[in-house]
């Protein structure tokens, strides 16, 4: 069940905890390059976190403990998920049968309390944000699961060690098209779950149009720092899923695997940056259609897998 403490475990924990904020810096740098600017330092997110952890905060008087518990849970679940999913090595420190479900539901728990914290402020804008978050999550989760069905069918297993380990690397030769479809649909899920353009604009100046950022308007200081860190963890987790899904980080050589994995996550971040630079935000009514579309694409992948075997 649980792999013994080894070098992989140590690297895994270190990467999972230290690496994620870098991805935010990469995305911003790519956007800056596209916009013709020099951009902020790659390590800006680390400076921000440091700064936020040392700031004081102001708390709304309508709130209860849920308001502060939201950031805590989103961070705690983010860390736990980062320790459950495989990174540069197929078996994660906390891998077990059924870890896939636990990971998805942990993210759900984080979302639940983030929405609760938003509603706790009694602000119309934050209510709006959490309503949108709830709605889009309902459409994004099945996409993730349909993709999992494809992987489970191809690898004959459903714990992450096989689904995102050597099993998927072997499956690529037989079912390239289906896996490509899953990859595309999961990339869409990454964009939605991490509130990126074209689904949400993390940098917009208009609260009315936001989703995730508007939910955390009232958080400040260390709590906001936790949210920022939790968000970077979530982005990292999804990027890791995509990289593992490509099967490239399963060469057998541990050093190469970790190298490919880390490069891969940075490539995913670059891709997100390119999408953000090249696309405009969708109109709100278009988002459900786009998500259902991603679901249909993944479902088509499942159909392909089912008939070709």
């Amino acid at each position: 069940m649980f792999s013994s403490l080894s070098l992989h475990t140590i690297i895994h924990v270190a990467v999972a905890l230290l690496f994620p904020p870098l991805l935010l810096g990469v995305i911003n740098r790519v956007k800056a390059v596209f916009g013709g600017r020099r951009g902020q330092p790659l390590l800006q997110a680390y400076y921000d976190l440091w700064k936020l952890m040392h700031k004081d905060s102001v708390i709304s008087q309508t709130t209860t403990w849920v308001f502060l518990f939201g950031p805590v849970v989103s961070l705690a679940t983010g860390i736990l998920v980062a320790l459950i999913i495989p990174l540069g090595h197929a078996s994660a420190p906390l891998a077990f049968a059924g870890d896939v479900i636990l990971a998805v539901y942990l993210l759900g728990l984080g979302r639940f309390f983030t929405m609760g914290a938003a509603l706790d402020t009694g602000s119309a804008f934050e209510g709006m944000g959490s309503a949108r978050e709830a709605t889009f999550a309902c459409l994004a989760e099945p996409v993730l699961f349909i993709g999992l069905l494809v992987l489970a069918k191809l690898t004959g297993s459903f714990s992450m060690i096989d689904v995102l380990g050597d099993g998927v690397a072997e499956a690529w030769s037989g079912a390239t098209v289906a896996l490509l479809l899953v990859l595309v649909s999961w990339f869409v899920v990454l964009l939605v779950e991490n509130s990126r353009i074209p689904f949400d604009d993390p940098n917009t100046h208009l609260e009315l149009t936001m989703i995730h950022e508007v939910m955390v308007l009232d958080h400040s200081g260390p709590a906001l720092g936790m949210i920022l860190y939790g968000a970077s963890l979530k982005l990292f987790v999804f990027a890791a899923l995509l990289v593992r899904l490509t099967g490239l980080a399963a060469t057998g050589n541990p050093l190469a695997d970790w190298g490919i994995f880390l490069t891969g996550t940075i490539v995913v971040a670059c891709l997100v940056g390119v999408v953000e630079s090249a696309m405009a935000r969708f109109r709100l009514p278009t988002i459900p259609a786009a998500l259902v579309g991603a679901g249909v694409v993944a479902f088509f992948g499942f159909l392909l897998v089912m008939i070709e075997l």
Partner: peptide
């Protein structure tokens, strides 16, 4: 996480209107 927030002095944070 809760302890960390407490350690950063969240308990005595000033209260204000919802922004």
């Amino acid at each position: 996480g809760c302890l960390a927030l407490r350690w950063r002095g969240i308990a005595d944070a000033p209260r204000g209107l919802t922004w």
